[in-house]
Design a protein around this nucleic acid. Sequence first.
DNA 1: CTTTTAACACCTAGGTGTAAAATT
DNA 2: AATTTTACACCTAGGTGTTAAAAG
Lengths: 218, 218
Amino acid sequence: KAGRRMFPAVRVKIKGLEPAKQYYIAMDIIPVDSKRYRYVYHSSQWMVAGNTEQSPLTPRLYVHPDSPASGESWMKQVVSFDRVKLTNNDMDEKGHIILQSMHKYRPRIHVIVKEVDEHISVNQSLPANGVHTFTFPETEFTTVTAYQNQQITRLKIDRNPFAKGFRDPGRNRVSLERVMDSYPWRPVDCRPSLDFQNFNIQKPVGCSASPLGSSCTG
Amino acid sequence: KAGRRMFPAVRVKIKGLEPAKQYYIAMDIIPVDSKRYRYVYHSSQWMVAGNTEQSPLTPRLYVHPDSPASGESWMKQVVSFDRVKLTNNDMDEKGHIILQSMHKYRPRIHVIVKEVDEHISVNQSLPANGVHTFTFPETEFTTVTAYQNQQITRLKIDRNPFAKGFRDPGRNRVSLERVMDSYPWRPVDCRPSLDFQNFNIQKPVGCSASPLGSSCTG
DNA sequence: CTTTTAACACCTAGGTGTAAAATT
DNA sequence: AATTTTACACCTAGGTGTTAAAAG
């Protein structure tokens, strides 16, 4: 049972690193609370539907595949986490990030100074020192195995190249922007240039997102 | 202009590393001589056809993508260089290994002990110390842009999954083994188990091989 | 003449949402 | 009834040898 990618991916720009020093950049995803949610169609929002039953696992760490690299390398590009995979299988052995469906989560980005002879790999816990952690409120999302909100489905079909087969040629860019404008998570100063890059940097997930790894091969 | 992969790939098993130490494993490809070759059909062999005109470039280093890793990691798997790409474009800026067509080459494998705060990347030259270099005579090959020897073409079509579209369902495994047995580079003690893995470990290239990056996209 | 380039059909490999089936 | 799993058609992305045209 394979995981599925997060889409849109978390993408960050990093400043203020020391160009010559080596860094790891990593992501993990932490629960926002211990509540289980359900989506209420007639009010178009997620409502608390009970408490989490399972005991919280230690979040797995996804180390960006370019790690380790120099501060110079990290700063001159957008750092994209588009290859991270999510699963709801708590017995996962492929290093995917394990989440529970119908819960709220918040990605965290960790910038880790590389100390001499230190080697970080997937699923290792964070070092005690030399770590800076960042979260962005607009990246919060709710996990699902089946989409609850049709607008999210449309958003993904229209933006994810792998879903091109489901695109409706009749629906154009204008109506898509209308969908996006109905969400609060995209800052005003980005709206004029709604291209793929800006869209992803802002990580639009809103009220539903990132279906967990339901099947695929494996 | 993109490069093309080497096929079959160079694959090595490594022993005797210190399990806890970190190593880079890298490959480069050096010219065997300064001769230009042509293939003589009626005698089925490569003959000297003149001297190399171009001045020899410093060979580029292909660092195995798993680098750096511990001796333990390297030793418990076959290390495959199947993703290295070759090109005849001496202005290449994609980090591919640059070779001249119609010349003889020999791959080299470098095992590089990682010193503290040392970071090796593509196209960097080899460190002065802590490097062990290995070559295997049976991996020597001649570069081409168009295959000269029909047996090599058959071999690649039958063995490379990406060339499946050219396979002739009428030609079976027995006749393929006959082709292979006509070459000297496969040791006797491997013949009973001619599966894909053994085939590749022995890197059969013989009298012609690895067409340079002639086109593709890019 | 020989060798190289470019476009191409045909593959491998893997990421989509969908719909029906299975599970809880 | 709600949620999850599975198989699937349809994509992206990229690695093959072939062929005809281009280059030398």
